[in-house]
């Protein structure tokens, strides 16, 4: 597709500015530019960020390296350790080929997220399951895809319940929710790992960086709440213990006064 377009008109090699790219391509391919304008990259990555400022950079823009400069950390690692990421890494992907079904041994970042010249995000949940099913079923049986997507959704529901539980525990902290802000943030980060693990098919992110890590967050949150309660009770006890307080509370000695 890209190659065909390059062949039909002779264009200068560049370099071009962002405005020059948009001016020309909005006329040649208005739908594509519109997708970019309304997609997640509109405010974060312009044409030259992925394609460089010269023509001929299309294969490089299709390769994973074009994405991982910005999308690093858990996003890149969850993909790199997945079977897809591994096969792209050790294979010799031909990035001259369009990002279409049947043309790649394994999907790179752009194969799924910018499938077949899409310039929004093909994997955006708002696009609905049909798009994902189409992309995945280029290689996987339709029922396999549906069952994997369902399993991913249920895995995320479980993670969601844990985050909900974390919020409820944090609310019980005597010093208010803010006292557990770090632990809550950790729980949300681990829930995100579960999502990345499900989306990128990385068992390691679904599990070790995800579910048991969330279990640890819940334990530490509960411990923080329990500890604060015990220390508050202890402080109250110390007050009752001080000579002045003891005088005030001299008469009723029953029941520890808590």
């Amino acid at each position: 597709m890209g190659t065909a377009q390059r062949a039909d008109t002779a264009v200068a090699e560049g370099p071009f500015t962002q405005d020059e790219c948009v001016e020309c391509h909005a006329a040649r391919d208005p739908a594509l530019v519109a997708q970019w304008r309304t997609g997640p990259h509109a405010s974060t990555a312009d044409c030259v960020a992925c394609h460089s400022e010269r023509h001929g950079g299309l294969p490089a823009a299709r390769a994973d390296a074009a994405c991982t400069g910005c999308h690093d950390g858990a996003v890149a690692h969850s993909y790199a350790t997945s079977k897809h990421g591994v096969l792209v890494r050790i294979g010799r992907p031909d990035w001259m080929r369009p990002l279409q079904r049947g043309l790649h041994r394994a999907p790179g970042c752009a194969y799924c997220h910018l499938h077949d010249r899409e310039h929004g995000d093909s994997m955006d949940a708002a696009r609905g399951p049909a798009v994902r099913e189409w992309v995945c079923s280029g290689c996987h049986a339709p029922r396999y895809v549906r069952e994997q997507l369902d399993a991913g959704a249920r895995l995320l529901e479980v993670a969601g319940l844990k985050v909900q539980e974390a919020e409820q525990i944090a609310a019980r902290h005597p010093m208010g929710g803010i006292a557990s802000a770090d632990l809550l943030a950790s729980a949300r980060r681990h829930a995100r790992n579960v999502r990345l693990g499900a989306g990128h098919q990385s068992p390691d992110y679904q599990w070790w960086h995800g579910q048991p890590a969330l279990d640890g967050d819940l334990i530490r949150l509960r411990d923080a709440v329990a500890r604060a309660a015990r220390e508050a009770a202890g402080a109250a006890r110390v007050e009752t213990d001080s000579p002045s307080a003891r005088r005030e509370n001299a008469t009723p000695l029953s029941g520890a006064g808590r």
Binding site: V158, L161, K162, Q164, E165, Q168, I169, R172, L218, R222, V225, A226, A229, R230, A233, G234, R237, D241, A256, R258
Partner: peptide, 21 residues
């Protein structure tokens, strides 16, 4: 401290048992 003053363990209530998950 809890044993000497209250004569028993701190009671956490349902803290470790409640929650949607």
């Amino acid at each position: 401290a809890e044993q000497s003053k209250d004569g028993r363990r701190h009671d956490p209530g349902d803290l470790w048992l409640a929650g949607p998950y």
